[in-house]
Each structure stands twice: as structure tokens, then as C-alpha cells.
Simulated assay, not measured.
Amino acid sequence: MAPSATWTVADLEPLVGKTFLVTGGNLGVGFECALHLARRGASVVIGCRSAARGGEAVTRIQAALGGADVTPGGFVSVTTVDMSDLSSVKAAANSLCGRAHTELHGLILNAGVMMLPRSLTVDGQEVQMATNHLGHFALTGLLLPPFAAAAPAARVVCVSSPAHRRCTDLALDGWTLATGDTPMGAYARSKAADLRFVRALARRLAAAGSPVVAVAAQPGWALTALVDKASPDAWTALFLTVLKPCLSHSAEGGACPLLYAATEADVVADQYWGPSFLQSKGPPAAASSRAGLVLSDEAAAALWAKSEEVTGVSYLG
């Protein structure tokens, strides 16, 4: 195992016989995760809202599986899922549980939206919280059976962001953010929810005696379409423009902390992996800082209860 301080995708160990699901695996950091897992011999399922876009990603990955530095056995497929739509999440989970493979060794909860104007989903949920947290909360619970069957222990990697530090309140009593929030504020709230979710999930898995490991990761400032689609306020946009040249890195670089968290032996439950340089770029490190808001077990339990209420999915109770 290469040390994390120098770790790149080239250091991924062979993953033949293992199955991973990567939500949002059709582009950006998610695509790089799916690509490099498949290149190391894993069976990878890409979760994508569009079957056409997912198919395009599959074609691109398949074309990259013939090189001399590729571990044989890699395979990639797509499952259609809209993480903001709970009926779509539940349908995708049912489909995945019914497929030929009965084990799931890794779930990278990567799909997300960023700094969008407020809108509500078909379920009446604020769109960023629905996509970035609620859909992934439900999907994880619905996929516990194939996780439990996996050997060695499976991993759940939930993708957060340093932006979570800008959240001061998860607004459990003002859940849909009807008034008084901004695109950045709603995004930060959803990413804080991701970290609270991992904390609660890790403790519930341990209490149940499950070998599944729940861990958080963040890609740093990866140059992807997610940033291009954002609608930041003027000050945030100026900040991003000024710092981008010195603090950003590629989508492949952004995938490294996620891949490390999903595969390496020294990863332990409830860690938070991210880039080593100012949490923005560089090789993986388990040193990404968390705001006090997400470190309370009581607060994590409150979010868990709210997530169960809203999604109708209960597990590890």
C-alpha cells in the first residue's frame, strides 16, 4: 500500500471480484472514480439520472479498459436514478438488489448539485438537501442486504465539502428553507448533513455489529461541471475566480480522496478524507477539518430521525 501522502490512482490495488456503485458516476469526480475502479478490475455500476448520459460514460470507460496497465476483469454498467426523487431511488435500489451480483463492496455517494436557486423536488423537498443527502440516506438503507453479504468489509463513502463549515443550523424546524437562505447557504447545509449522516451511520453500524465501514470524503476544488452549473452570489463568484488558479486541481485529483477512502486498508469509520493542501488539492489525507456543528452525536441522531421521517426509509434502529 502506497502512503497517502504520495497516493495517486496508479496506486489502486487490484479489485477483481468487487462491485462498486458510484452515484453521479457519469461525469466529473464520479466518472473518474468509476473509470479507475473499473481499470483495476472491479465491476462498477454508474448511477445517473439519464440513461443516455450514463451509456455515454459506460462507452468511454469500456474504451479505456484495453490498455497494458489495466487489470483484467473490469466491467461497467449503468442504473438510472434521480437522487432528488425518492421513488426513483427506491426503484433503483430494488433493481440493484435483484441483479445477479449479491454483494456490494463499495458505495460512493457522489451525486450532487451545488449552489442552485431554491426549488422543491417532486417530493416537496428543498432540492440541494434532497439530492445531496436525502436520496443517499435512503439508498444506503435500501442497499444494506448486499453490503452485509460483502467480504471483506464493505465501504460507504459519503461525499461532503469544506463548504459545510458555512452552515450554522440544519434548520430541522424550517426544513424546506421557505425564507431567508441563499444558494450557498442551502448547499452548505446539505454538505453538513452529509457529515452528520456519516457520523450517525458509523455508530449505528458499530452498535449492530456490522463490518461495514462508513466514512466521509471530499474532493477539494476539482474542476468539474458541478462548479460550472452553480449560481453563487457575487462575492462567492469573485472569491472562486481569484483563488481558482492556485487552489484547484483536476477531476482525477479530486477522485483520489474518494477512491482512497473506498479501498485502502488504513481507513477507519467516521474519518473525513480530503486533499492534503488546504483541503483544496493534493494527495489524500485524513485531516479535513469538521465544524463543531457536525460533531455532536445528539445532533446526528436528530438528523437521522428527520431523514427517516422524510424518506420513509428506516434502518439500523
Results as ranks from 00 to 15, higher is better:
Ala150Val: 08
Ala150Ser: 09
Ala150Phe: 02
Ala150Asp: 05
Ala151His: 05
Ala151Ile: 04
Ala151Cys: 02
Ala153Phe: 05
Ala154Ile: 04
Ala154Tyr: 02
Ala154Val: 04
Arg155Met: 00
Arg155Ser: 00
Val156Gln: 06
Val157Phe: 00
Cys158Leu: 07
Val159Met: 06
Val159Thr: 12
Val159Trp: 03
Ser160Gly: 05
Ser160Trp: 01
Ser161Cys: 10
Pro162Phe: 07
Pro162Gly: 14
Pro162Ile: 14
Pro162Trp: 09
Pro162Met: 14
Ala163Ser: 10
His164Met: 13
His164Asp: 14
His164Leu: 13
His164Pro: 11
Arg165Ser: 03
Arg165Val: 06
Arg166Ser: 04
Cys167His: 00
Cys167Trp: 00
Cys167Glu: 01
Cys167Tyr: 00
Thr168Met: 05
Thr168Arg: 12
Thr168Trp: 03
Thr168Tyr: 02
Thr168Ala: 07
Asp169Arg: 14
Asp169Met: 09
Leu170Met: 02
Leu170Lys: 00
Leu170Ile: 10
Ala171His: 11
Ala171Thr: 13
Ala171Val: 08
Asp173Tyr: 03
Asp173Ala: 13
Gly174Pro: 01
Gly174Ile: 04
Gly174Trp: 02
Gly174Tyr: 02
Gly174Ala: 13
Trp175Gly: 05
Trp175His: 06
Trp175Arg: 07
Thr176Val: 07
Leu177Gly: 11
Leu177Trp: 05
Leu177Lys: 15
Ala178Tyr: 04
Ala178Cys: 09
Ala178Glu: 15
Ala178Leu: 11
Gly180Pro: 01
Gly180Trp: 01
Gly180Ile: 01
Gly180Lys: 06
Asp181Ile: 04
Thr182Asp: 08
Pro183Cys: 08
Met184Lys: 11
Gly185Trp: 13
Gly185Tyr: 14
Ala186Phe: 05
Tyr187Lys: 15
Tyr187Met: 15
Tyr187His: 15
Ala188Val: 11
Ala188Thr: 10
Arg189Ala: 03
Arg189Val: 06
Arg189Pro: 03
Arg189Leu: 05
Ser190Phe: 02
Ser190Gly: 07
Ala192Trp: 12
Ala192His: 15
Ala193Lys: 07
Ala193His: 07
Ala193Cys: 14
Asp194Met: 11
Asp194Phe: 06
Arg196Phe: 04
Arg196Pro: 01
Arg196Thr: 10
Phe197Glu: 14
Phe197Gln: 15
Phe197Arg: 14
Phe197Trp: 13
Val198Lys: 08
Arg199Ser: 03
Arg199Asn: 04
Ala200Pro: 11
Ala200Asp: 13
Ala202Phe: 03
Arg203Val: 00
Arg203Pro: 00
Arg203Asn: 02
Arg204His: 11
Arg204Gln: 13
Arg204Leu: 09
Arg204Glu: 11
Leu205Trp: 04
Leu205Glu: 10
Leu205Asp: 10
Ala206Val: 10
Ala206Ser: 15
Ala206Cys: 08
Ala206Arg: 15
Ala206Leu: 10
Ala206Gln: 15
Ala207Pro: 09
Ala207Phe: 06
Ala207Ser: 14
Ala208Cys: 01
Ala208Met: 01
Gly209Val: 09
Gly209Phe: 08
Ser210Pro: 11
Pro211Arg: 11
Val212Ser: 08
Val212Trp: 03
Val212Leu: 08
Val212Phe: 02
Val213Met: 01
Val213Ile: 05
Val213Arg: 03
Ala214Glu: 03
Ala214Pro: 07
Ala214Thr: 05
Ala214Asp: 03
Ala214Val: 04
Val215His: 05
Ala216Tyr: 12
Ala216Pro: 13
Ala217Lys: 10
Gln218Trp: 01
Gln218His: 14
Gln218Phe: 00
Gln218Cys: 03
Pro219Gln: 10
Pro219Ser: 09
